Amino acid sequence: MSNKNTQALSDAGVSIWLDDLSRERLTSRSLVKLINEKNVVGVTTNPSIFHAALSNGQSYASQVAELAAAGMDAEEAVFKITSDDVAAACDLFAPIYAASNGADGRVSIEVDPRLARNTAETIAEAKVLHELVARENVLIKIPATVEGLEAIAETLAAGISVNVTLIFSLERYRAVINAFLTGLEAAKANGHDLTKIHSVASFFVSRVDTEIDARLNAIGTEAALAARGKAGVANAALAYQVYEESFTSERWNLLASAGAHAQRPLWASTGVKDPALPDTLYVTELCAPNTVNTMPEKTLEATADHAQITGDTVSGTYEDANAVLDTLAALGVSYNEVVDKLEVEGLQKFEAAWNELLTDLAASLQKAGK
């Protein structure tokens, strides 16, 4: 039986995806429990999540031993292990995928973050990952770097569904939507069925507040301290305004008439970092139709326990959201400087997690091969 709060969120048009995946989650059926009881209809992964999964417990021991016996190195093994997990999760979500006409029941897997500045290699790996998982409901995650924009368009043009990740700025989000439209136009020209192609645009939320609030604390004035904890929601609300405006254009209407699905905004990094803020802030204040909220389990449990879901809390808040950003600018906080820094740091964190994953897996393979 579904939880009343997560059901209310779903009824308001928000798809709940879990920001976590591991072999243990699959074998213990804890993921099934979240599907049945907490309205979870998809899963996202990233290098940090996979590093944590492979570092804990013995769930992967037998497969690591098999891969070591087969002579695989860490690079080969990591793609085999992660794609197997994603494929199994895709199978689990297949009924939801079918029932939602492909919008949900999705499982995301990310290209090697070390390729984020290399367009050609990102495109090539996106296609390889798509073939490795070999499931229609997989989403290939591509970071929204400048170099990633062409990769996003080319991957969509090949008929592959994409989760565009690591978006912080409104300007970059507009460029992502343009890449999405360009990719669908090419996919149509290439003869692909547009009804089968889906995409989400992952707008990161809590990291914006973490960075901006640190700057406000450093300023230390009464006005600066009063502005804390507002930027993440405001930035996401303005992204939703961009979404609403972008998918009413004549360019979009031509694609929609051919069966295309709009690229939905996805709220990522929705675990609240500041204990002074409500732990469901990025759920209750970012409730809007046709969105996805990908939550760490802690946020999902908090939502189920005590979130007050009151329907759409985003539409029509754009004037207030702009006022928040104007206040920050007046206080001397540079929006462009913040979002540029966050993109660089986000890539660094994912690359570090990927390198640690490879190092740990190489050690495990060596140990298993003795």
Rank of each mutant, 00 (worst) to 15 (best):
E131K: 13
V138E: 10
T165Q: 07
V162N: 09
V138A: 07
A134M: 09
L115N: 02
A151I: 05
E171G: 15
S161R: 14
R174C: 10
A175R: 10
R106A: 02
E136W: 04
A157P: 15
G159C: 01
G183D: 08
R174K: 06
T122Y: 02
K141H: 03
T119S: 05
I140D: 12
S108A: 05
A157Q: 08
I96D: 14
E154I: 08
D85S: 03
D91Q: 09
N163Y: 02
L149F: 13
A187Q: 12
F93W: 14
A158H: 11
D112Q: 06
T165R: 13
V111A: 02
S161E: 08
C90L: 00
F168W: 10
F180C: 10
A153L: 03
L129G: 00
A126C: 14
V111H: 00
A120P: 13
R117K: 11
P113Y: 05
A151G: 08
T155Y: 11
A179G: 13
S83A: 03
H130A: 14
V111P: 00
A124E: 05
G159Q: 00
I142R: 14
D84G: 01
L181I: 12
E131L: 05
I167Q: 10
F180S: 09
G183W: 09
S83Q: 00
R135L: 01
S108Q: 06
L181M: 14
A175T: 12
L156W: 05
T119C: 03
A158Q: 09
E185F: 08
T119V: 04
L156G: 06
F168Y: 12
F180R: 13
D91V: 10
A94I: 00
E185W: 14
D112N: 10
E171C: 15
V146K: 11
E125V: 00
L181A: 15
H130C: 08
V162H: 09
D91H: 15
L139I: 02
C90P: 01
I152R: 11
P143R: 00
T122N: 05
A186E: 12
F93L: 05
T155W: 06
N178C: 15
L156Y: 04
I81Q: 01
G148K: 07
G102T: 01
I81H: 02
Y173Q: 09
T145R: 12
T122M: 00
A88Y: 00
E121S: 06
L184K: 08
N137C: 01
K188G: 10
I96Q: 12
V162F: 06
V128R: 06
R114G: 04
F93P: 06
V138F: 08
E171M: 13
S169R: 07
I140F: 11
E136P: 06
I177A: 05
R172K: 11
I177C: 08
L181T: 14
A99I: 09
E76S: 05
A98M: 05
T155K: 12
T165Y: 02
E131T: 11
T119L: 01
I109A: 03
K127H: 11
E131M: 03
L156C: 04
V86C: 02
N101E: 08
C90T: 01
E147H: 10
L184G: 01
I152F: 07
T145P: 07
D84L: 00
A151D: 09
A179N: 12
L115H: 03
I140P: 09
L139Q: 06
A153R: 12
A189Q: 09
E136K: 12
E136D: 10
E110L: 00
N163G: 03
E154S: 08
A134W: 14
A99D: 14
